[in-house]
Design a protein around this nucleic acid. Structure first.
Length: 429
RNA sequence: GGAAGGUUGGCCGAGUGGUUUAAGGCACCGGUCUUGAAAACCGGCAGAGGUGCAAGCCUCUCGUGAGUUCGAAUCUCACACCUUCCGCCA
């Protein structure tokens, strides 16, 4: 959430920043919360101080064996007034907190203003899309020949749950292994294995549970949600803690399944593996000092790009405009991979700098060199989405005979196979 | 599913109703000493909020939430989590 001190000191700047992303800050509501808070807080603290001092006097008198009834009489009625003030203050703080927790982050100044993905800005492009001398198939048709099976998935769990058999399943695993190995061995991330469910408190630490709960699968009867990304468990490693400056940055990479309800996306990307309820992803997360956040964000984005370069898949990097930037993010780059089957670039990674927004929500702090406690900054990105990477490989590496060439970088992870032959689901090539 | 024990500051740990203003230790920071370092000694050192130009002052927080009391880390109740043992089990 936003820094309450910032709102108190420079409210107009915060309002202007939020307006850039199309968020109307309810200034009147905030001012009224604050005025009420001040009144209740000073009265409550005054009463508490009085109670404490009277109780102390009683203690001293009783310790000496003297009569305390005069002091006790002085405090008559105090308890009731204190109680009503305390509960009013608690209610006020709860309301203020709920108000603050649904306010999105303020975009960084260099984030271009815009309403939708149409206003995103391309910042760079890598690779040249391949030209085909045969009719290009999309990944569903290519996959059908090597073990990609939506019918069985639908029988088991419904739409948006693919099943993979044989060569394509192996290719999928190879992609995940390759990504995790690259991030840990070449980019200095520590591999972590994490729970695939988190509590509501953790979910509200990275985003707003109140706003986005319908995007998550909830475990019935329990305060647990299936993770929509490993960002949820991994970023929460530092929740409610104070880390030492010397231990930063923390860099973690996790391979996990991701579960998304896709509420509201009915009819969108219904074909294939672009948008599923379950997909795998290698997530990279950095916990950094505030002064290092911007550079770390650029670095992390490069770590995601490195995967596509090694796979020799053409891509472009988009700087999301204010209207397309996620709730918690101050600045986001989307990496879009070229998909010949769609004749378009499609998102395969999203790399965000959350600055202190998530850290404040989850009380993740560090002790700086001067001994001062302040929130850490958090950054994360997909490095990469495995399912969509598989889509990209199938479409970019398809051959006229229905087989799929294995990208050079993946051959070691495929037991040396250089091609996946169409035909038998168990074909290894 | 059954039983027992536990949860105190960055970490360990004392504390069973009132000078607890949470002992002590570790870690950390500063200093003395030293060629430098270590050791030793001296001092500092929880977080959050409010208020103030500042020094400071005030409030809250001992797993969470209620309750008893003039007063709760301490007593009562509920819940969460952790540990150990038994049973079942991938």
């Amino acid at each position: 959430m936003l820094d309450i001190q910032l709102l108190r000191k420079d409210l107009s700047a915060a309002i202007a920043g939020l307006k850039r992303r199309g968020f109307d800050f309810d200034e009147a509501a905030f001012r009224s919360f604050e005025a009420e808070r001040k009144r209740l807080q000073s009265r409550t603290e005054e009463l508490q101080a009085k109670r404490n001092s009277l109780s102390k006097q009683v203690g001293i008198l009783k310790g000496k064996g003297e009569d305390a009834s005069a002091v006790l009489a002085e405090g008559a009625g105090l308890g009731e007034e204190l109680k009503s003030n305390e509960s009013a203050l608690a209610a006020n703080q709860e309301n203020l907190n709920a108000f603050l927790r649904v306010i999105p982050n303020i975009p960084r100044p260099e984030v271009p203003e815009g309403a939708s993905s149409d206003d995103n800005v391309e910042v760079r492009r890598w690779g040249t899309p391949r030209t085909f001398d045969f009719a290009v198939k999309d990944h569903v048709d290519v996959g059908a020949g090597i073990g990609l099976d939506f019918d069985t998935g639908a029988k088991l769990a419904g739409a948006r749950f693919p099943v993979m058999k044989g060569g394509i399943a192996r290719l999928h695993r190879a992609l995940a292994q390759f990504m995790l190995a690259t991030q840990t061995e070449e980019h200095g991330y520590t591999e972590v294995y994490v729970p695939y469910m988190v509590t509501g408190e953790c979910a509200d630490g990275v985003s707003s549970l109140a706003k986005f709960e319908d995007q998550l699968f909830k475990i019935e009867g329990r305060d647990l949600y299936l993770i929509p990304t490993a960002e949820y468990p991994v970023t929460n490693f530092v929740r409610d803690s104070i880390v030492e400056a010397k231990d930063l940055p923390l860099k973690f990479a996790a391979h996990s399944p991701c579960f998304r309800s896709e509420a509201g996306s009915h009819g969108k990307d219904t074909r294939g593996m672009i948008r599923n309820h379950q997909f795998d992803k290698v997530e990279i997360v950095q916990i950094v000092r505030p002064e290092d956040a911007a550079a770390a964000h650029e670095e992390l984005t490069g770590h995601a790009e490195a995967i596509l370069r090694k796979l020799e898949l053409p891509y472009r990097v988009m700087l999301l405009c204010t209207g397309d930037t996620g709730f918690s993010s101050a600045k986001t780059y989307d990496i879009e991979v070229w998909l010949p089957g769609q004749n378009a670039y499609r998102e395969i990674s999203s790399c965000s700098n959350f600055e202190a927004f998530q850290a404040r929500r989850m009380q993740a702090r560090y002790r700086n060199e001067k001994g001062k406690i302040e929130p850490v900054n958090t950054i994360n990105g997909s490095g990469l989405a495995v399912g969509r990477s598989l889509v990209a490989v199938l479409e970019n590496y398809q051959n006229a005979d229905g087989s799929v060439t294995v990208p050079k970088a993946l051959v070691p992870y495929m037991g040396g196979a250089t091609v996946i032959q169409a035909g038998s689901p168990s074909a290894r090539g």
